[in-house]
C-alpha cells in the first residue's frame, strides 16, 4: 500500500474526476463516478462504481461507513487509496484485480461489495451485520426468492413454475 497516498485532498479528487470524464465512456462504461454530488464521500463514489447502481440508499451507505470505520481505524485512508485504484482501472482490469486474493485494495473492494450485497461489514469476530432484507443480493432475485426466514408464500405456493 506504499504507493497509495495517505492524504487524499478534495482538490485532487476533483482533478481525478475530471480526468475520468476525459477518459470517456468507452474506457469506463459505467463512468467512474456517476452522479457525483458536492459533499460526495469516498465510500459513496466507490460504492457506486462497485455496485453499478446510482440509487444507493444513503442511510445504508452511512451505516456501512460507520461500521467500517468502527472495525478499522485506517479505513478512510485505505478507502481513498481504493478510490484512486478505481479511478484508473477499466472494468476488465478491475475484474482481474478484484479476483486477486493478495491485493489489499481488492480486499477492501470485496469487503465493500460484501457490505452492499450481503449486508455484512468486516469478517471473523469483527463482522457486523448492517442490513439483511435490504442487502442488494436479495434485491437482485426479489421477483423469485425471499431472503431466508421470510416466507415464500402460502403453503404450496412454491410448487408453481417460478417465472
Amino acid at each position: 500500500m506504499n504507493d497509495i497516498p495517505v492524504e487524499f485532498s478534495p482538490h485532487r479528487r476533483r482533478l481525478m474526476q475530471g480526468l475520468a470524464a476525459l477518459a470517456g465512456s468507452a474506457l469506463l462504461p459505467f463512468g467512474a463516478f456517476p452522479a457525483a454530488a458536492s459533499g460526495d464521500t469516498d465510500l459513496a463514489a466507490v460504492s457506486r462504481r462497485l455496485t453499478g447502481r446510482d440509487d444507493l440508499n444513503p442511510a445504508y451507505l452511512a451505516a456501512l461507513d460507520n461500521a467500517f470505520r468502527g472495525i478499522d481505524a485506517g479505513f478512510a485512508d485505505r478507502l481513498a487509496g481504493l478510490r484512486a485504484v478505481l479511478d484508473t482501472a477499466d472494468d476488465a482490469a478491475l475484474r482481474a484485480r478484484l479476483a486477486d486474493a493478495e491485493d489489499e485494495a481488492a480486499a477492501l473492494a470485496r469487503d465493500i461489495l460484501t457490505g452492499w450485497y450481503l449486508g455484512v461489514a468486516g469478517s471473523g469476530d469483527d463482522a457486523v451485520c448492517v442490513a439483511y432484507a435490504d442487502a442488494l443480493s436479495h434485491a437482485v432475485v426479489a421477483d423469485v426468492l425471499r431472503p431466508r426466514s421470510y416466507a415464500y408464500g402460502a403453503y404450496g405456493s412454491w410448487s408453481a413454475k417460478p417465472l
Binding site: 432484507a133 435490504d134 425471499r146 426466514s149 416466507a151 415464500y152 408464500g153
Partner: peptide, 15 residues
C-alpha cells in the same frame, strides 16, 4: 409479522 407479511408488509404469493 414480517416473517410472513414481509418486511415491507407486501405479503405475496397468497399471503
Amino acid at each position: 409479522c414480517a416473517t410472513c407479511h414481509q418486511p415491507t408488509g407486501a405479503g405475496g404469493n397468497g399471503l
